[in-house]
Amino acid sequence: MKNNYSLNFIKAIIPIFLFSFFIIAEAQTNSVLFIKISPEIPGAYEEVTASVSSPSVNLDIASISWSLDGKKFSSNVGQKSITFKTKGVGEKTTVVATATLGNTFLSDTATINPSEVDILWEATDIYTPPFYKGKALPTSESSIKVTIVPSVFKSNGVAYKTSELSYKWSRNGEILGSLSGRGASTLSLKNDYLKREESIGVETRNTSDVKIGKGGVIIRIVDPKILFYEKNPILGVLYNKSLFNSINLSNEELSLVAEPYFISPRDKTSSKIQYTWSLNGSPVATNSKNPNILVVRQQTGVGGEANVSLEVTSPSKILLSATNNLMLNFKGR
């Protein structure tokens, strides 16, 4: 029997990558030699081992020859395995093994065709301030969207369309049957407030329902945080420098802007988000249209210091909150 194999590779990028391939066996009438690729799902440019087995011939005393893409690679008595590296994405490697023992001649062929799949995720309802260049990170009970972007090739070298493939999703070890299926390349979920991370797995199958890969990503849940900035009457909010610990008031008035990184929902002035300001422990009222801004004025001839504290919460989300404080030093103008 002669076995043909094709291998596809899945890679996920986030902060995390995954590698997946598949091997398909197809019978041939005159062979009792079998090639096995290990690891079963190697990646592009990855070291793999090809090994042979036979249920009827003692390969330890057989003369075994190996070739890669038609070129002799190795030959020796009892050489039941070889090690080599795969090529790049979409570049096939054809492995042929032959075994001779007396008048018995056996052969088998395996074709390795690396492919890759990117796994992307985003927190869809998270606030980040202007000019923030990083990734919006998920916090407790936030919404997350996971997307598969495949570059998977058929045996003829033509890439599969995303809609042609089937996806079986899992979340924290539980199969999500109702969210899986053909073309289901995206997964939307809401974090459970009791979990500090979401473990997402996916298994991909081709149009013949043959598994071509699997992998996963762990999405860690973070806490929101508050940073303070000064709002200049001419230049606007000075996002290039955050305020922390203790600052001196050089002007009569300070507009203190609080930016609640990674709070949810995305609109920081939403009625679903509450800002609780206090000055030396006493509550301070702010403008309801801009609840994240506190205006502080120092009195003429009065010096000293004051502790400004802020707590930001989202009452509909049990564990979603952030706090910060800032010491203000008055010079007594």
Rank of each mutant, 00 (worst) to 15 (best):
N248W: 04
K133L: 14
S51H: 02
E252Y: 14
T93V: 15
T93H: 03
V210N: 14
E230S: 14
G134N: 07
P130V: 11
E122S: 14
K211Y: 07
N58C: 04
R171I: 14
G301A: 01
N290D: 11
P224W: 15
L235C: 00
I64S: 05
I126M: 03
Y132C: 02
E141Q: 12
L310T: 07
G173Y: 08
F131I: 10
G216S: 14
N8D: 01
V152S: 05
T286D: 03
I212L: 13
G181A: 01
F21H: 08
D223L: 13
V117L: 13
F330H: 02
T29D: 14
I221G: 03
F17R: 00
S288C: 00
V52C: 02
T128W: 03
G173W: 07
T313G: 05
F19C: 06
I35R: 00
G43L: 02
N307S: 11
F34Q: 02
G70V: 12
I219P: 05
I112H: 00
S250A: 09
I24C: 03
N206S: 10
N172S: 12
K87L: 07
E311R: 15
D267P: 00
Y45D: 11
I318N: 09
G43C: 01
A27V: 09
E141P: 01
T83M: 10
I218K: 13
S271I: 07
P129T: 11
T186F: 11
D118S: 14
G90D: 10
E46H: 09
R182P: 00
L176K: 09
S250E: 14
Y239N: 08
T124W: 05
K72M: 13
E197L: 11
L254N: 06
L243T: 03
G304S: 11
